[in-house]
């Protein structure tokens, strides 16, 4: 029950030893009781946090099919996403889409915490939030990508984007082999958080 003990240094004495499940439930109970959140909204939000395709997946597919839409996505990501039917609250941090279809391979990291575009990508994978990736992606991107099985040609420059401030980033990958014969639904399944962060390439079947 260290959550309520504040030590002289200002650090909680024992919060990390608490049963996080009970603590999360207790905090939820209190904010519901305080009228800040209502129980149904909270439970619906909890239930929605299951693995699923990134919300931006169909938008990426449309960008592959439609060059004019692709240009709009690259110049105004939120505008293009709204045009494609995504619902984006005005409070979400703006996102920028980086073009991985050209000469440069982009890789996204947040070295100071784990910034990511929640409304476009969904919940990020655990590795994105882990010390190893946050430490190494900026200094040895090729070695990190190789661990993901992605070997970028030595002749192709890599650009790392450190999401340090108010903007969030996802990449527009090159479409997979055979994309022109695939359905939109099949193409959308090739878009994963890994693909959107630049550590993996979309692959059909």
């Amino acid at each position: 029950m260290g959550a309520t003990r504040v030590g002289p240094s200002g650090h909680e004495a024992g919060i990390l030893q608490d049963d996080p499940s009970a603590l999360a439930d207790a905090v939820a109970d209190l904010v519901v009781a305080a009228g800040i959140l209502d129980r149904n909204t909270l439970e619906a939000a909890v239930a929605a946090r299951v693995p699923g395709p990134p919300p931006v997946a169909p938008v990426i597919v449309r960008a592959w099919r439609d060059p004019e839409f692709r240009a709009r996505l690259l110049s105004d990501a939120f505008g293009a996403c709204v045009e494609a039917g995504l619902v984006l609250a005005p409070t979400w941090p703006r996102a920028v889409v980086l073009d991985n279809t050209g000469d440069i391979h982009h890789l996204i990291v947040c070295t100071l915490c784990s910034c990511h575009s929640r409304p476009l990508m969904g919940v990020p994978p655990a590795w994105y939030k882990a010390h190893e990736y946050r430490s190494r992606a900026v200094r040895e991107p090729r070695a990190v990508l190789a661990e993901f099985g992605l070997h970028i040609d030595q002749a192709r420059p890599i650009r790392v984007q450190d999401a340090s401030a108010d903007l969030r980033y996802v990449v527009l990958p090159a479409p997979p082999e055979g994309w022109d014969r695939a359905t939109d639904a099949a193409l959308a399944t090739t878009i994963t958080p890994e693909v959107l962060l630049g550590v993996s390439l979309p692959r059909l079947g």
Partner: peptide, 16 residues
């Protein structure tokens, strides 16, 4: 919390 550029081990790519 400022981790960029530090040495660290391999990335655990397990997804759960």
């Amino acid at each position: 919390h400022d981790l960029g550029g530090l040495n660290a081990g391999p990335v655990d790519r397990n997804v759960h």
